[in-house]
Design a protein around this nucleic acid. Structure first.
Lengths: 237, 237
DNA sequence: TCATTTAAGTGTTATATCTACAATTATGTA
DNA sequence: TACATAATTGTAGATATAACACTTAAATGA
């Protein structure tokens, strides 16, 4: 006798559809922006490169499905992920009519579960060398890149791709990878430090130089405090 | 024997879902930004205010469904419309589980078919006085407004809300309505005219002042030429 | 231990953009 | 012909952006 049950008959004349969730998973490693891609292990298009995906279940929200799929592949929770777009061309999937909703995630590549990734036959590929992908997955990737480039300028999402401690040269290298553009050290540092949301640590990273570069940490609380006062994150690219 | 048919069995174990399209339709009239809302004529929530929507059919894409629904309500084709977000909370619709994909459209309020709108029991409501809406429709409207405010700064979408001939005071009034903010006449004109995509006509609009204001027209070709050269539309708000 | 090498770290100036601000003009109406 | 109304126009100060080169810290090896 819930309202739910009493009206469902009215909707019955309409069609139902398969809904898939596909995840565009970005990581940053060796100065390059990378994507996590899988070799698809079922038909159609078995053996071809694909985004990680899955079908929407009966009792989960879209976001929950997205997080489930990401978790199953990487073992990661509490990840930055946001819905990108819904893809509904009638023949986009040759197996059946499937509406796919793409999500894009930014992960710290050090943290993921490498065993799980192996089990899923997933591999990191630099965005400059993306192999041909099934269906409209390449289009999804292009949308995600566009979205990442929009967001990274005006929201502190870049930090999601780095370890919690990072150096300014690393951070600059990340932005250079996202925008395929070399940036001026002095201007970049001035820009990011003047926003006042990075904490300098006493520790130095010494793998990449003799002098060593100081570690910094993104201070989320400080960022929230600033935005509450009308401040806007902005990186000049 | 198409691949389509050969693999559909593999997908069968998964659930199928109702998919609805809901349209947030913006217009601009009497210095106000307005929304086209309907009185829902079926259960559940019959008689309550709602966005115009409909279910996705078997053989149409998401975009096609959006245009179909917009056409059925307004008689308009070739309208600026873009996908906004997909809404999949399990209980968002008390009638049944329905995934809704929201679209937002910008229309020139003069052009729509008033008869059709009446037949659908649809009404224009200023965004400052939106009545309570069913389900998560208010959230959709808020997202659409946010999106409009993002886009109108950096893309020439505002013109979609105006007649093809408009005056600069009208255009300024539109931006003021979108951003709920009064703008400086001189700066606004300098800004928009310096982009070089508006054509001044010889004709004047004389309803709103004795002096009359010159009509202008948005030159789409010019805009495309400029963007091809790396130009970016930008209105300082 | 001192010279060399490597990447980190730092300021200033010119240019472009944004913001604030008020007088004049055209035209209809009394 | 005076008046009322809204359209139209420019400049100067402030702020943000972009260009540019030397110094410093520390490891390495002669």
């Amino acid at each position: 006798m819930t309202p739910r049950k009493s009206h469902v008959e009215l909707y019955k004349k309409h069609h139902k559809h398969f809904i898939a969730i596909d995840c565009i998973i970005f990581g940053f490693d060796e100065g390059e922006l990378k994507l996590l891609l899988i070799k698809r292990n079922f038909e159609p298009a078995k053996g071809q490169w694909s985004l990680m995906g899955g079908f929407l279940d009966e009792n989960e929200s879209l976001d929950e499905a997205g997080y489930r799929i990401l978790y199953n592949l990487t073992g990661l929770k509490d990840i930055y992920m946001s819905q990108l777009h819904s893809h509904g061309e009638v023949n986009r999937d040759p197996g059946a009519r499937v509406i796919s909703i793409s999500y894009f995630a930014l992960i710290n590549i050090q943290n993921h579960d490498e065993e799980l990734v192996k089990e899923n036959d997933a591999h990191w590929r630099p965005i400059s060398k993306i192999p041909p992908l099934i269906f409209d997955h390449r289009h999804m990737v292009d949308l995600a890149l566009e979205q990442l480039r929009k967001e990274a300028k005006i929201k502190p999402v870049g930090f999601e791709l780095l370890p919690s401690k990072f150096t300014l040269p690393q951070l600059q290298s990340l932005y250079e990878a996202i925008y395929s553009k070399t940036l001026d050290k002095r201007n970049f540092r001035k820009n990011i430090l003047s926003m006042g949301m990075l904490e300098k640590l006493d520790e130095k990273e010494k793998e990449n130089s003799k002098k060593g570069a100081f570690y910094y940490r993104f201070n989320e609380d400080k960022y929230k405090e600033l935005t509450a006062r009308g401040f806007y994150f902005n990186i000049a690219i």
